[in-house]
Simulated scan of single mutants.
Amino acid sequence: MKLKSAPHLIAACTAMICAGASLSAHAETGKLLLTGGVSSIDGAAGGGLTPWAVIGSNATEGEIGGTAFVTTARTKDYGLNIVGASVGIHDRYELSIAQQDFKTGVTGTGLGLPGLHLKQTILGAKVRVAGDAILDSDSLMPQIAVGVELKNLGSTGLDGTLRALGAKREGVDLYVSATKLFLGQSLLVNGTLRATKANQNGLLGFGSTSDNSYSLQPEFSVAYLISKNWVVGAEYRSMRDKLRLPVAGANGLRAEDWKDIFVAWAPNKNLSVTLAYVDLGTIVPLTTASRKQTGYYLSAQVAF
């Protein structure tokens, strides 16, 4: 699927959010503060690194709401900027879009591509299929959702290298998430299982000559509500490691699992800010002397 009209998609998504606002502007939502999660790097509601089974926005049953977010992350060698938006419909359906701009800085020099930008557009859809995080908070039943993410990596000077490695610029991720909210303990836990061909979440294409099949990658989150406005937590996201250089024993494109420790602040239902320490392991160690990519993640979201 070609995603060449991303600006038009963002405009359409924004129009849908505005339409939702006009339908629910006078309705007081019943969703508790921070229980809708924040916007993940792929646009879906959840934590910063991984989707949860929650539906984004403040909309509850019978309402339509939306979110918009901006995120920036910096590690020792790389930078990532993301903008996106989502629509939540009746607290059951979610549509999202995100645009990622990954800046390689000077690391691309080793590949003859200094200052290379990798840009990816992600369209997402999620459906809550069972459970209710709030209504089932006094039982062991989690909220369960299934989702799909259509990813398209823009064309760059890296295209020839990716083709040589058997990686395509388009891919589809499928996932199922289970989120359990323990209101009495102020605790939320989430588990996600993702079927993917993505290398470094798609920033290095999808599939490879060595393995073009889907891989199942687990993702986990835990969050603790220290007050009605503040949440602290941690995330873990297993990363597919199937991209190999066509040289025996070469490990210059190794991928490692992603992790973070975060704090989120929501002064009200319409605004949240998330700050995290991230550890993305090694990303293209061939060009970074195998340095661990640790740094910070900062995201702001508006929701209604």
Rank of each mutant, 00 (worst) to 15 (best):
M1D: 15
M1T: 15
L3I: 11
P7D: 01
L9Q: 14
L9H: 03
L9A: 15
C18A: 14
A19V: 11
G20L: 05
L23V: 13
G30R: 11
V38K: 12
S40W: 12
V54S: 13
A59Q: 08
G62Q: 13
E63N: 02
I64S: 07
T67A: 07
F69Y: 03
A73C: 05
R74F: 14
T75G: 09
N81G: 13
N81P: 03
I82R: 00
G84A: 07
D101P: 04
T109F: 14
G112S: 10
G112M: 10
P114A: 05
L116Q: 15
L118V: 02
Q120S: 01
Q120I: 08
T121W: 02
K126A: 02
V129Q: 06
G131R: 08
A133Y: 05
S137L: 03
S137W: 02
D138R: 15
S139L: 02
L140K: 05
P142L: 03
V146G: 04
G147L: 06
G154D: 08
T156M: 10
L158K: 14
G160R: 12
T161L: 14
R169T: 10
S177L: 05
K180N: 09
S186P: 01
L187M: 07
L188G: 01
A198T: 00
N201G: 11
D211L: 04
N212S: 14
S215T: 08
E219Q: 13
F220A: 15
S221L: 07
V222Q: 05
I226Q: 06
G233R: 10
R240N: 13
K242T: 14
R244Q: 10
A248Y: 09
L253E: 05
E256D: 14
D260T: 13
A264E: 03
L271E: 07
L271G: 01
T274L: 12
V302P: 06
F304K: 01
F304N: 04
